[in-house]
Design a protein around this nucleic acid. Structure first.
Lengths: 163, 163
DNA sequence: AGCAGGTAGTTGAAATTTCAGCAGCTAATG
DNA sequence: CATTAGCTGCTGAAATTTCAACTACCTGCT
């Protein structure tokens, strides 16, 4: 195995500042939602996605992909949202294996109520701190990264016995 | 309370693409570390910070701040790293309350071993996908965000009884 | 010295996420 | 049609993180 190609200063600084900024940002977003609306960002995001979906309904797998959850995590999370009365499970008509998660009226109300302060927070932590150029740049960068990553295989298969 | 100032399309797209990209990125980084080095990114980061610190040693609170962990999370995490023999706890000489986390030789070896593939992953997921201009922009944006957030109070005190 | 208020780190329990594996179903192949 | 590979979602247990105290100690003030 070759020598480790360490990051140079510029590379290091880019990666670390990105890491730091994202984490500080998400930490604040989480904290604010928990404090003002008593809901975690994970749940808030699920509810939001559903609220935007046609029929307030999504297939479990699609919802998981949208939220970048694995299936198991989503499954447990939906259990809890169902328990709280914000989501309902509906069998999928076109695929017997499938389940749809449907947002209830209570769930819809919950998102609405939580959204107000959340949006303000996103503005003050992210949008208001950047120039228009920076926002554009960030968007382009993010989209490039997301596209690139989505195209890559999830697991790097290494040295597989060749048949 | 005023009407919710929803994000317009451009704002929405910036925020969501940033959200998506960061999560995909961190998800891959986590997965790779787990797969190749059998360690979570959280632990890897703790070990890394310690490996760079003078004397391979840091105060708990500083380490927590560097990793954007709360104290409790760090405390539990260090428990586990101590159990695994990668970290040692040392009382702080200057402050009786304090503790120092010290990286053991085994811990150092673990970081070294994990770092190789991790660095490659950071390159292929992030650095190699951006132009030099984009890397510069991302760095500036991240630093602006991090600075801004660090300056803000953690909790928005609302409607406090005026004395 | 004695006290008030803040800081450092830990603790245990509850909540959440991860992990491995499973059962049922679909779809492609021959 | 039968086979088989792959997908869908769920489950339970283990690992981790969050939450709310709590102890011990430091700092500045009187």
């Amino acid at each position: 195995m070759a020598e480790t190609r360490w990051l140079n200063d510029e590379e290091q600084r880019t990666w670390r500042s990105f890491l730091l900024a994202s984490r500080l940002l998400f930490e604040r977003v989480e904290r604010q939602l928990k404090q003002d609306a008593d809901i975690s960002f994970a749940y808030y995001e699920i509810l939001t996605r559903l609220s935007e979906a046609p029929g307030r309904t999504m297939r479990m797998a699609d919802l998981a992909a949208a939220c970048v959850f694995d299936r198991s995590r989503l499954s447990h999370a939906i259990d809890r949202l169902v328990r709280d009365g914000w989501v309902r499970r509906v069998p999928c008509p076109s695929d017997t294996r499938g389940q749809l998660a449907e947002l209830t009226d209570e769930g819809m109300e919950k998102v609405r109520q939580a959204a107000h302060d959340h949006v303000e927070q996103v503005r003050s932590l992210l949008l208001d701190r950047l120039t228009l150029d920076q926002r554009t740049a960030l968007q382009e960068i993010s989209e490039a990264l997301a596209t690139g990553i989505a195209d890559m295989p999830k697991l790097i298969s290494m040295g597989w016995p060749s048949r």
